[in-house]
Write a protein that binds this DNA or RNA. Structure first.
Lengths: 168, 168
DNA sequence: AAGTAGACCGTCTGAATAGGACGGTCGCAT
DNA sequence: ATGCGACCGTCCTATTCAGACGGTCTACTT
């Protein structure tokens, strides 16, 4: 029950486990097909983090009896509380635009050449997102709202790079 | 001259030093007043990274004779080359939208409550950026283009959260 | 029944980063 | 001459990254 620093990754794990008990592998799967596009976590991390959280008492851990002896994690009351607090906490942090293309632009790369490549990338990503939206449910769930945000930003990138590639 | 992995931070340092020789402290200053908004680097890193790059032969290092004995770094030919290659390389990487507010939304935070806080944050950031644009030069330099991108994305955030706060 | 391909699942390690505590050095105004 | 605040830099611990590596299960073949 030592106290540890809770990072966004921690809450990510807590949040996914709140949807139901899960093994690290299942978490990894979920990330791969959804949130991972917005907020990637290296898979090794997905095995480590639940351990850490269990050590802090925010998750409980049981081991399957069967052959594979997978470790299954569940939210504890403390974990539920920690997550709820974070979710309602009016956060102060905000985004950084940590984009490699943007950094290159800043540092003096040729705008037009750069724009072409970046434009293609973002158009592809936008298409993927829109496909996800089409195949996703229609209820305004958290994930769907987040996807909307993703789409908005990809559109913005497309606008931005398109303008640069024309102007160059 | 051991070979090391070059990260975006590496190129960031190379790029800033290309504008002229610099001490780590000067790099820190530059970051604080510009690029740091888009791509933050902890200050300790700004002292370590030039060292690493010098070890790899991409920077040269000289020490002031004067009292403070500051370390001054310059680009070597190898550094110049590495930077130029990266800048022209049509990158494959692209952005993640690593935003804490967005993560909360995904994980089920109350959209309307969240939106209010986030809206205020992004409006403030947008205002700062626009002020920077106003006081900045008018030539379309790399930094100015990057600032444009930042403004575009902040506007997008404002649109997004505003819509959520109305709908809620 | 034994073999084996391929998916499934997990651990480990070294390098790099984050974040902040801490400690020296300088000029200038008492 | 001394003491204060700004200037400048290092160090330490916890965490993260990236990816190599290694087991285990199922299903299908022979």
């Amino acid at each position: 029950m030592s106290s540890i620093r809770l990072t966004p990754t921690s809450y990510l794990v807590l949040g996914l486990i709140r949807l139901g008990e899960a093994t690290p592998y299942q978490l990894k799967q979920q990330l791969a097909m959804g949130l991972g596009d917005l907020w990637s976590v290296p898979h090794a991390q997905v095995y480590r983090e639940p351990e850490r959280l269990a050590g802090a008492g925010l998750l409980s851990e049981t081991v399957e009896e069967a052959g594979r002896r997978r470790r299954v994690f569940r939210l504890t009351a403390a974990g539920e509380k920690a997550l709820a607090e974070w979710l309602t906490d009016p956060t102060t942090e905000f985004t950084e635009l940590r984009d490699a293309g943007l950094l290159k632009l800043f540092l003096g790369a040729d705008p037009q050449a750069l724009a072409e490549g970046q434009l293609a990338l973002h158009q592809a990503q936008l298409a993927r997102f829109e496909e996800m939206r089409a195949s996703g449910g229609d209820a305004p769930s958290g994930p769907m709202l987040a996807l909307e945000a993703g789409i908005g930003h990809e559109r913005e990138w497309v606008r931005f790079w398109k303008r640069l590639s024309r102007e160059g």
